[in-house]
Design a protein around this nucleic acid. Structure first.
Length: 565
RNA sequence: UGUCCUGUGGUGUAAUUGGCAACACGUCUGACUCUGGAUCAGAAGAGUCCAAGUUCGAGCCUUGGCAGGACAACCA
């Protein structure tokens, strides 16, 4: 089934960044122009936290009639790969955003950055330091203690220039020396204590190959790229707050008129029961704790996509959680609510039995196949109806039957009558067991007058069960997912590795599932609601002979709540 | 012994010239229902980190505390 277009969209509410921008527009800053950028480092797959940033950056520009650039922050060739560039572009597009032809790379600016560094050297604002990393680090001081100046700090401009050229030309080994800005070793802000601008790396770069032996540091690249691209609002996460004075310092050295990009920080997303750091996600992938970056249990965008999340559901989630500077923790339940809300309006309904229990309808003609009409989506009349085959033997869900039902159990039990959805009323007459006392099948009778699901005498039943014909069905594998971690903050424990909290039951594979024949025509990533069970989508592992479904999320279930009381 | 940032129901956000705290998720009732879904109606739950001050009036302003977070990679 193709994706329906009637996605639900939550109105983007105004956040503190929008407020700042509106104030700027009122002041006439940048002539009312708004230009943002999304700057991923291509060293891993995007996750739901990046989705928040993408929605913020693209959404803010859209809101104020501006543009958003995509810029890969590729200043460290030892970590970055083209595979990641491709996945990032796919994910942003899938989320529904477009950067037009404004696809940039920090590496596009390597020449300009080099020239800028030369300018700083000429102005006596940068110098080559021959000390090793450890020494430089020890001279930095601590957050509470000032640093000390490097003995190389006052080299002549000419000497600095010569050495910088030699660095560029590969005349040194990695670690021999670095280029540093000459700012203030006494600054209370660590980042202003003569930060490193360039380091030597003899690693080929995914775009510039072996052209460069020196690469700029993040701080020396990011703000300048913003400046050259005409970015007005450079939105980043809270940990860069202390970098802002340095960001501004570089812009001060660069700017030629009133224009200057402004860095604004917001709190990154933390989701309960998951980890969000790229390093930890990479670890899960590399050590095979999950099947890959797109494992449906991963909080990556590709994982959520494979799990069955829709772009609209992620966008809505992102709008709903808001944007602030408060470092908090969002309940995964809100993410789940967002998919249910969207899928409820759009998903094709079908019937599927995950844990089959055979039912023989003893008074139904053998060999007969009836086609019964079923509604495709009660939330969307336009979705129409389909036919579902009914036969003498059917499967129902094993836990839809109880031999000795408690008070509030409304489903099938000995002697009780229930409705089979879109079919007939049936009454349980016999419970068949094996030698060990396990229930192997049920015998029921049906009321032919209740065809379609209603009895002409107005008789009511308390429950409606989903079912699938024993002979007219598609057998499928269904993968049930639970949270990957059993702890709310798996990486929040100082002495315990986050992997200790991995949930051993996060994946449950059911191979004996029966789905109504309608699903034969479905394609990977198609969304369904298996009635009464939850939302599922077809996994790309499916082959024509074997369909595989992922459970995106369960339906809200008041019965299980009742049970847990 | 520093700099910067943050503190509003269980969670997340709102309260725009100071006017007795709103919304969403979650929770709990009930109605309706051919999905124990959805929908609808309703409830509980904070007096805004603390203290003092200004004011007729403070979540918003002032002062002083307290608590949490970020910063010491040739990572981003």
């Amino acid at each position: 089934m193709s994706e329906k277009n009637q996605e639900t969209e939550v109105a983007v509410k105004k956040n503190f960044i929008h407020q700042i921008i509106e104030d700027e527009i009122k002041e006439g800053k940048n002539n009312g122009r708004v230009h943002t950028r999304f700057p991923p480092e291509p060293n891993g797959y995007l996750h739901i936290g990046h989705a928040k940033s993408i929605c913020l950056n693209f959404g803010t520009a859209q809101k104020y009639g501006g543009l958003t650039n995509l810029r890969f922050d590729d200043t460290n060739p030892s970590k970055e790969e083209t595979e990641y560039v491709d996945s990032i572009k796919d994910d942003i597009r899938w989320l529904g955003f477009d950067w037009g032809d404004r696809e940039y790379y920090a590496s596009d600016y390597f020449n300009k950055l080099f020239d800028f560094a030369v300018k700083l050297i000429n102005e006596g604002k940068a110098y080559i330091d021959d000390q090793d990393a450890e020494t430089i680090s020890s001279q930095k001081g601590t957050p509470t203690r000032p640093g000390t100046e490097s003995p190389y700090r006052n080299r002549s401009v000419q000497e600095n220039l010569d050495l910088f050229m030699k660095m560029k030309d590969g005349g040194f080994n990695e670690g021999d020396c670095v280029l540093r800005a000459k700012i203030d070793m006494d600054s209370p802000n660590m980042h202003m204590r003569d930060p490193i601008l360039y380091r030597i790396m003899k690693t080929p770069h995914h775009r510039t190959g072996d052209k460069w032996y020196i690469y700029p540091m993040y701080d020396f690249a990011h703000g300048q790229c913003d400046y050259w691209e005409g970015i007005t609002n450079s939105i980043c996460t809270l940990e860069f707050e202390v970098h802002r004075p340095l960001y501004d310092w570089f812009i001060d050295q660069l700017k030629s008129d009133d224009y200057r990009p402004r860095q604004i920080e917001f709190a990154r997303l933390n989701l309960s029961y998951t980890v969000m750091s790229k390093r930890k996600l990479l670890e899960l992938v590399k050590d095979k704790h999950v099947k890959g970056w797109d494992d449906p249990r991963m909080p990556t965008i590709s994982g959520l996509r494979r799990r069955g999340y829709t772009p609209a559901s992620i966008r809505n989630f992102s709008d709903r959680i808001g944007v602030t500077k408060v470092d908090g923790m969002i309940d995964v339940a809100l993410l789940e609510h967002s998919v249910r809300e969207d899928l409820n309006k759009t998903a094709q309904r079908i019937m599927g039995v995950l844990d089959p229990l055979k039912v023989v309808i003893t008074n139904y003609p053998e060999g007969q196949v009836e086609q019964l009409e079923a509604v495709n989506n009660p939330e969307d009349p336009e979705a129409g109806t389909r036919m579902v085959p009914f036969t003498r033997e059917i499967y129902i869900e094993r836990d839809d039957f109880m031999e000795n039902p408690p008070n509030k159990f409304f489903r099938l039990a000995p002697g009780r009558e229930v409705r089979l959805r879109y079919a007939y009323f049936i009454t349980c007459t016999d419970v068949i067991k094996d030698a060990d006392g396990n229930i192997t099948e049920l015998h029921c009778t049906y009321d032919p007058a209740s065809k379609g699901g209603n009895s002409p005498d107005g008789r009511k039943v308390k429950a409606t069960l989903h079912w699938v014909s024993v002979t007219e069905n598609v057998k499928a594998e269904v993968r049930l997912y639970d949270r990957l971690f059993s702890d709310e903050t798996p990486d929040g424990h100082k002495d315990v590795d986050f992997k200790e909290f991995m949930n051993p039951g996060s994946l449950q594979v059911l191979s004996e599932c029966y789905i109504e024949p309608f699903v034969k025509q479905s394609k990977p990533f198609d969304h369904f609601q298996f009635e009464r069970l939850g939302y599922f989508n077809l996994d790309p592992d499916s082959t024509p002979g074997k369909l595989v479904f992922n459970r995106t999320v369960q339906l809200r279930d008041t019965w299980s709540k009742e049970q847990n009381k």
